[in-house]
Design a protein around this nucleic acid. Structure first.
Length: 509
RNA sequence: GGUCUGUUCGUCUAGGGGUUAGGACGCGUCCCUUUCACGGAUGAAACACGGGUUCGAUUCCCGUACGGACUACCA
């Protein structure tokens, strides 16, 4: 009875993948790996009107970037191909026939206007279930109410129609959700879902059940938004006689905006939260939107952060690699309530992984982050030094050069909390800096942080002065900022000539 | 409106009939440090409300309030 675990991530290529979808994919991946099963990606492209060019490639690029690729997909193929629903049309046609023959589905010829009329009437009458359902279908134009000959005639004449699920009027539907436990829903609250649309393609409700069955899916992880329609899916499994092979369901809590509402694109940008994993160009609005990757988030940080939204190992551990997550992930530990997105914590994870990253790797990330900017083409040598200088004070790779503009341009403004403070900025300090610049002419050693430090100390000692008293003044005169990373390393990066020039200018500050 | 679903520090969460209700992010203070940051230490900060059940409820039950999802020939 134990079947090999097979889970699927079933995104719809209607635009860039949403961050919530990324988490769903991650949970699917973790579960599959843990059980030595298969993780598949099935493209749910049955809505031709909403199809967006490039969206499918985007999904795969995201999974590759995060290191959670699919075992079977429309990209790599697999035993149960095709994995694109638009290519499975005949399969659905065959299976809907079974339902039709068994009397669990029926043809409906109603126009959109007629359906809208029905809803308006029912709402006006304060119906508790104002929909096309087991009760109201009696008043509509369908193969249940029309004479068989007329149905036949309409079908042969090619009249537009849909095929609907014949929901039983009074039946308790029960199923077990792995996260929420036992679910009981009365069929009288359901509607007769459209299974096959007028264009001949199936709706999600139908395609998803048929495909999950055919692809031997054992567990369905999907967003909470599917919970209300799950009973209709259960009905489908029952009508097909597939209960024994029905997958177990786990409806994941939603990821919410900081204010507790749905994390929409608009809401997200309002709070400075990226919603997309990668860069996305919206052809409709001509909008370019940066993703987590372009913002400088590391994949391991995103994975760790996402995994902990709505799930917890039950320990006090906060840092998990993908590999660590695999054996630990438990459905029972998935939270029921929606979780608000906390960008500060995401940044903290990024800082953590940044600090633990290999310097060479960081240097190439840094260079990459500068490529399309005026500073572009930061040399490997400079990048290496910047990493040492800035690793501990950066949230994103680009911070390592963006937070030190004075390394690229001499400052024109100087921190007034220093230059305006007579205890920190006085003639003695200015004279000392001036002297440093003059003495630098005779400096012949290698220009390194170490030798520079030695030099400054020597000059100070010769005059019986304490260096500490001038350090902040030197820093401000050099960088314009009263605070920052290691000054000696900054001077080393600046080079002797530039350092001397900046120091020489001290009297004009 | 209806159906479903949820509610522990500001946020993510652990816990579960008797606990000083634990951790993390963020915030405050201190230490380290030439500054800042890192790091370390430390502090403030929560069981939505009302009824039960019970010797005892934050924990179990029922309501209330407040969220959220769904209510398409979209997924």
């Amino acid at each position: 009875m134990e079947r090999p675990v097979r889970v699927r991530f079933a995104p719809s290529p209607t635009g860039a993948l949403h961050i919530g979808g990324v988490r769903t994919a991650l949970y699917n991946y973790l579960f599959a790996r843990q059980h030595g099963g298969k993780f598949l990606v099935r493209i749910e492209d049955t809505d031709q009107e909403r199809f967006v060019e490039g969206a499918e490639e985007y999904i795969y690029e995201t999974l590759h970037w995060l290191g959670i690729p699919a075992d079977e997909s429309s990209e790599v193929g697999g035993e149960y191909a095709p994995y694109r629903q638009s290519e499975r049309k005949e399969i659905y046609a065959k299976y809907i026939q079974i339902l039709l023959e068994k009397g669990h589905a029926y043809y409906a010829f109603d126009t959109k206007e007629e359906i809208e009329d029905l809803r308006n009437r029912l709402e006006a009458a304060k119906s508790t279930n104002p929909s096309y359902n087991a009760l109201t279908r009696q008043q509509m134009k369908n193969s249940l109410t029309l004479p068989a000959e007329e149905v036949q005639r309409r079908l042969e004449a090619g009249e537009p129609h849909v095929i609907r699920l014949k929901t039983p009027p009074r039946e308790e539907i029960r199923f077990h959700d792995l996260i929420r436990g036992a679910q009981y829903i009365h069929s009288s609250t359901l509607d007769d879902k459209v299974l096959i649309k007028q264009d001949g393609l199936p709706t999600y409700h139908f395609a998803n059940v048929v495909d999950d069955y055919l692809m031997r899916i054992t567990h369905v992880f999907r967003g909470e938004e599917w919970l209300p329609s799950a009973p209709s899916h259960i009905l489908l499994y029952q009508f097909f006689g597939w209960e024994a092979e029905m997958p177990l369901f786990a409806h994941l809590p939603l990821i919410l905006a900081p204010d507790g509402s749905k994390l929409s694109k608009r809401k997200a940008s309002e709070y400075g939260i990226p919603v997309f994993p990668l860069f996305w160009h919206n052809h409709e609005t001509q909008e370019d939107i940066k993703g987590y990757r372009e913002n400088g988030y590391l994949p391991e940080a995103l994975i760790n952060f996402l995994a902990l939204i709505g799930w917890n190992a039950g320990t006090e551990q906060e840092i998990f690699s993908l590999e660590e997550l695999v054996p630990l992930f438990k459905i029972e530990q998935i939270h029921k309530a929606g979780a608000r997105f906390d960008i500060e914590k995401a940044k903290w994870y990024n800082e953590h992984y940044l600090r633990h990253k290999d310097n060479t790797e960081l240097a190439s990330l840094l260079i990459e982050s500068s490529l399309l900017t005026p500073e572009g083409g930061i040399s490997a040598e400079l990048a290496g030094k910047l990493v040492v200088l800035m690793k501990d004070r950066a949230t994103f790779p680009a911070d390592m050069w963006q937070k030190v503009p004075y390394l690229f341009h001499a400052p024109t403004e100087f921190d007034a909390t220093v230059t305006g403070d007579s205890k920190k900025w006085h003639d003695e300090a200015k004279n000392f800096i001036k002297e440093l610049s003059e003495k630098l002419t005779d400096f012949t050693q290698d220009w390194t942080a170490e030798s520079i430090k030695h030099f400054i100390h020597e000059v100070a000692e010769a005059k019986a002065l304490k260096v500490g008293k001038f350090m902040q003044a030197i820093r401000t005169a050099t960088t314009g900022a009263g605070q920052g990373p290691d000054l000696m390393l900054i001077l080393e990066i600046l080079g002797k000539t530039e350092t001397q020039a900046r120091w020489a200018r001290v009297e004009h500050i």
